[in-house]
Design a protein around this nucleic acid. Structure first.
Lengths: 313, 313
DNA sequence: CCTTTCAATCGTTTTAGCCTATGGAACTGC
DNA sequence: GCAGTTCCATAGGCTAAAACGATTGAAAGG
């Protein structure tokens, strides 16, 4: 059974006339007749009484007509739905690592809502490796994660470079030391994210570069937990500058380390082969302009001014 | 868009793999790929992210998948419904003229219900010309009407020949006359069916053959009305023997006319070109055996015995 | 009875779907 | 890394099926 046959069938049923049905379908009458006969043969029922003047539905024909209309309506709906781009490609799946998700995404999503009201953004917060798997499996449209990313199937667009800062409680001895070097951290207990966290990896590598293993006292799932522990002086940590928020000032001190600054770079990851949906494009466009504006409004501020002020406290 | 393409599409969506989808559809992978591409081109959307390992639905693809499933389900339903002969061809439209419908059809339908419980019989009671039109237009499967029928497109199968009897009220003078000839009727007022009735036509022709016009005092739509008028002595009528019922005996007298007996013949009418449905066949078979049994059980009874008895009352 | 209408049939042409073969990209395992 | 494998797209030839044009034959209508 093919749709063409169904279309022919409905045309005959409605015109009660093979010739006029053929005209309506823009084919010759023999072609249409043949297809109707084929259809009848396949389904094992005659659908029309070929009376002298008109073609009248048999009972089987009447039964099939209902179904046929339903099928064609389904086809019609599908076509219309797909051509109605209002509905389509307005839902995207965005992934982000935990040190990015709570800080970048909320304002960004808000901005997207203003500029593209129909755009629906679904967020998945996960570690880098899981996000990468998600993209490779086609589950995510794009992801915000830290570099390095080596997968060759991924397109990597760096969007943001920021220093990693030492975080200590306001009462902590390191809060007052004029210069803090990497080596000094070897004597302290760290509060870090889980082992899958790319930030944790990076911190461990950083420590390794300075010839010590960090002593990890707390493994947390959330940044907020890390901050709370550090705020009570139970440990120290290293966080990207972007994780700093106003609320932290009462309990936490963020400090640059002397020597070579550890940094992290955040990038947008996409699948090279994946078709880029309109919604994803819109999200990206918003992301880029938002970052550009932010850089223009407070150039380097997040890397210097506020950090430099800390030691004075 | 064709069903084949939709089937291919669903297969790919479900296997997430063009090659395996092709196997499932029993075609080669290039054939299937090409059809998917055609479909995507026609509808203006890519339906799959062709990632390295698997093919993942795009949003448009996911949207279309729902519709596609619905369409295929519709096709499936249609096929199943048509192959389920329990449902089909169990509804027939039967026409009958007023002088036949109330007498032949009820017992016949009851018998059909016993023998073919799924058979649904819809009855249309109408005059002969309208029934013939109904058959020619394909609205009726068959009709029971009186002869003659001249339309060459109709198959005519006579099933029953019966005399036309004079009907008078029990108090009417003609009820007691030893011999009633046609000529005598010229002096009386007739109660007849409407002008479209074939019986009325026949009666008028019969009177014409005996060189008089019947004086028609009442034109009724129903036999019962005619009988009631005649029972009150307000007129006389001529009815087929089959219209006589037990209940009439108290008020009516049925008499043969002397001389050449007027008769009428009832036949089953069908459209030669019309496909004969199973239900119609069953109805006909039941009709024939029922009539045969009736003739066997009371041979000639309805033409002689009961009629002959009447004058004695 | 003649004309018109209509569906089916026949023979031919065209189309389009299918197949085989191939290429290229990407993943896998050594 | 580097072969081997998997997977989809492309190209070209082939065939089956759909379309066409012409015709026939039956039926309807005037």
């Amino acid at each position: 059974m093919e749709l063409q046959q169904i279309r022919y069938f409905v045309a005959v049923a409605e015109t009660q006339n093979f010739t006029r049905a053929a005209e309506r379908c823009s084919v010759t009458q023999p072609s249409l007749s043949q297809q109707i006969i084929n259809l009848e043969k396949e389904l094992g029922h005659k659908f029309f009484h070929r009376l002298g003047r008109k073609a009248v539905l048999t009972e089987a024909g009447a039964t099939f007509l209902q179904r046929a209309r339903q099928i064609l309506a389904g086809v019609d709906d599908a076509t219309r739905e797909l051509s109605d781009s209002q509905v389509l490609e307005r839902r995207i799946q965005v992934g982000a690592i935990p040190t990015v998700a709570p800080y970048l995404l909320p304002p960004l999503i808000q901005r997207c809502r203003e500029e593209f009201p129909q755009l629906t953004i679904e967020v998945r917060e996960d570690f880098r490796s899981d996000l990468i798997r998600g993209i490779l499996d086609g589950e995510l449209d794009l992801a915000l994660a830290s570099l390095p990313v080596k997968e060759p199937q991924l397109s990597v667009e760096p969007i943001l470079k920021e220093p990693l800062l030492l975080v200590v409680g306001r009462q902590h001895p390191l809060a007052r030391t004029p210069q803090v070097t990497a080596k000094q951290l070897a004597d302290h207990t760290f509060a870090l994210l889980g082992n899958s966290s790319s930030l944790t990896h990076q911190i461990q590598r950083f420590c390794g570069d300075h010839d010590f293993e960090p002593r990890i006292g707390y493994r947390c799932a959330q940044i907020a937990t890390v901050k709370a522990l550090v705020g009570l002086g139970l440990g120290i940590s290293i966080l990207p500058q972007g994780c700093r928020s106003k609320d932290d000032d009462s309990a936490l001190v963020y400090r640059r380390l002397s020597g070579r600054q550890p940094e992290r770079e955040v990038a947008v990851l996409r699948h090279i082969q994946r078709y880029q949906s309109r919604g994803a494009e819109q999200f990206l466009r918003t992301l880029r302009t938002w970052l550009a504006e932010r850089d223009r409004d407070e150039p380097e501020s997040r890397e210097n001014a506020r950090v430099a002020a800390n030691p004075k406290d």
